[in-house]
């Protein structure tokens, strides 16, 4: 199989900030490839370079065999993009937005009109064709942007945090579209997200932090590599069990928002031991299979989820990091 996206040692500096720090990877045809990482990890920057909107400081990137720096127009013809921030003209109707896109990409009028119908149908917006985009909800806008990105039948679709800020139902719907696209149009999808659950939908993911790829594999294998079970222990009031656990069992304990978190080989048989030996000092014990969150935690020492980020973690990011 041919690699549709080839990235070699990509680097991007904004002044003194190194946003992307030597990233290399390949995406095969028909693959759904995800970039998973917290805000400020360099996901959008990478996408912008691949979409020819930014020049890299160093390294190479090719889309469908075309160099993003040397043949930007060739690349542009092959890709569809859904940006992280809204890029629709909200004074125009859904159909007008798609129509202008079709014109820009040089589609014949007949094809444009046919594609408008097809694409709106696909994202369930056919009934809103003549509606001005300003009246659309966040989810509808996103769906329309996906429809627009697909108007010219690109080989590769880039999605930058396509489901951020959407309700679970809309998120699920968007994933349905993406899976269908891959089935029906054999399109390659490159997406970014900072939602773990979402990354599970990808064929392969790269975990990215501070501009570097920390791990790259299928979600299943990443979790397998971690091995064992994850136990979250909430100590009874006030007790600091971290050092105790380390001393007794040689565990690597990480305090999280929910409690003390650690991994063991066989969780089911470890819990009775814990309960017997530390009994009263424990409020609750919770056992689960490792998630991508745990993978991220073990790779970076931090939890990725924003909603769980502690005050200390928030401080660690400078304010502007949160915006991108």
């Amino acid at each position: 199989m041919a690699s549709v996206i080839e990235v070699e040692n990509l680097v991007k500096d904004y002044g003194k900030v190194r946003a992307v720090d030597g990233v290399s990877f390949q995406v095969e045809e028909g693959e759904i490839f995800g970039f998973l990482g917290p805000n400020g990890a360099g996901k959008s920057t990478t996408i912008k370079i691949l979409c020819t909107l930014l020049k890299p400081t160093g390294g190479k990137a090719r889309i469908a065999g075309h160099d993003v720096e040397k043949e930007p127009d060739r690349v542009r013809r092959q890709i569809g993009i859904v940006f992280q921030d809204n890029s629709l003209d909200d004074r125009l109707t859904a159909a007008e937005n798609l129509y202008l896109h079709g014109l820009l990409y040089g589609l014949p009028r007949k094809v444009i009109n046919r594609r408008i119908e097809e694409m709106l149908e696909m994202v369930d917006l056919a009934a809103w064709k003549k509606e001005v985009v300003r009246n659309f909800s966040g989810g509808m806008r996103r769906r329309l942007e996906i429809a627009r990105g697909l108007m010219h039948s690109p080989q590769v679709l880039f999605l930058d945090e396509p489901t951020v800020g959407l309700d679970p139902q809309t998120r699920a719907a968007i994933w349905d579209y993406i899976h269908r696209l891959r089935r029906e149009e054999k399109i390659t999808v490159f997406m970014t997200t900072h939602y773990m659950e979402e990354a599970e939908n990808c064929d392969r993911i790269a975990i990215i932090d501070f501009g570097r790829i920390k791990a790259l594999d299928t979600p299943e294998r990443l979790k397998q590599q971690l091995g064992g079970d994850v136990i979250t222990l909430v100590p009874a009031d006030g007790a600091d069990l971290g050092p105790v656990l380390t001393e007794l069992y040689g565990l690597e304990v990480k305090p999280t928002g929910e409690g003390l978190c650690f991994r063991v080989k066989d969780g089911a048989s470890f819990i009775p031991r814990l309960a017997a030996e530390l009994g009263e000092r424990i409020k609750s014990i919770h056992l689960r299979r490792p998630t991508l969150d745990d993978v991220f935690l073990s790779l970076t020492g931090r939890a990725i989820r924003e909603e769980k980020a502690s005050a200390a973690e928030r401080l660690r990011y400078s304010p502007h990091r949160h915006r991108h």
């Binding site: 542009r76 896109h101 040089g106």
Partner: peptide, 9 residues
């Protein structure tokens, strides 16, 4: 909207 135009070929 400008981004949409700038990534067009």
């Amino acid at each position: 909207f400008l981004k949409e135009v700038l990534v067009a070929p």
